[in-house]
Design a protein around this nucleic acid. Structure first.
Lengths: 123, 123
DNA sequence: TAAACATATGAATAGTTGTTCATATGAGAA
DNA sequence: TTCTCATATGAACAACTATTCATATGTTTA
């Protein structure tokens, strides 16, 4: 949400022909602002093709950073930066083994969400 | 994916200590590039708090543009622009009734995806 | 210890995006 | 027709983001 009005009175429509019953009713069940912001942040992570690819390959097998970079034909640094984002959102977990760090999907939700997305774009 | 290397040889790791069996195996089952790009585009739509809010309020009731603007305390133009994005991704549908345009969610997937996201951020 | 390797990270930068403002379109009412 | 209302849209701009480059961190081996 890059832009924000500094002043208070935001001009919506003229407030007159708004369907009040609907608006009042939905206003009551609105989750708190923070929760919806978190939700958007969560989905934002899926909204980048590099991260989607990383999630996809990790859904197939546990893998180190170099494996992913090789599969996606991208630089190690780019992958590492994106893995950090995925880590922060707890979409991936990792374990060290010597010099190597193996990444894998954090839990089952991730695959469910990916599958739902696939279903939508495929009909 | 803002940046793209012009030249071919992208330096990954040194290709030597990559786990070949894994990489080869996953390479075979990788969906085509376009499908993963579409998937990222699809999720990108969920990755903005304004659009998440719009989807949420529409999950509660069919609504006109002004209703949404009032509920979200935002300008009519901003809502209209975002509804266009949602329309293009076929996440919302609409019907005209005189001067008013009523929007609603396009199908059930949307609510499922929202719910899965909520579940993830809430544990 | 030093060298080699795997990964992480900070800075810089170019591409992208969401909101605002001004205006256009389109439908109903006068 | 003209006026008003509801919505849509193009341009501009500030904030954001993903990649690259250079370098740092941390682990293993010699």
């Amino acid at each position: 949400m890059p832009y924000r009005k500094e002043d208070q009175e935001i001009e919506q429509c003229d407030f007159i022909h708004v369907h009040e019953e609907i608006v009042d009713q939905v206003m009551k069940v609105m989750p708190e602002e923070g929760q919806l912001l978190d939700l958007a942040e969560f989905f934002k992570v899926f909204g980048d093709s590099t991260r989607i690819k990383i999630l996809y390959v990790l859904s197939q097998a546990e893998m180190c950073v170099c494996d992913i970079a090789t599969l996606l034909q991208m630089g190690q640094s780019a992958i590492s930066h994106q893995l950090r984002v995925l880590k922060q959102m707890r979409l991936v977990k990792f374990r060290r083994e010597g010099k190597t760090v193996f990444y894998s999907l954090a839990d089952g939700h991730i695959q469910t969400i990916l599958a739902q997305g696939m279903e939508h774009i495929e009909e």
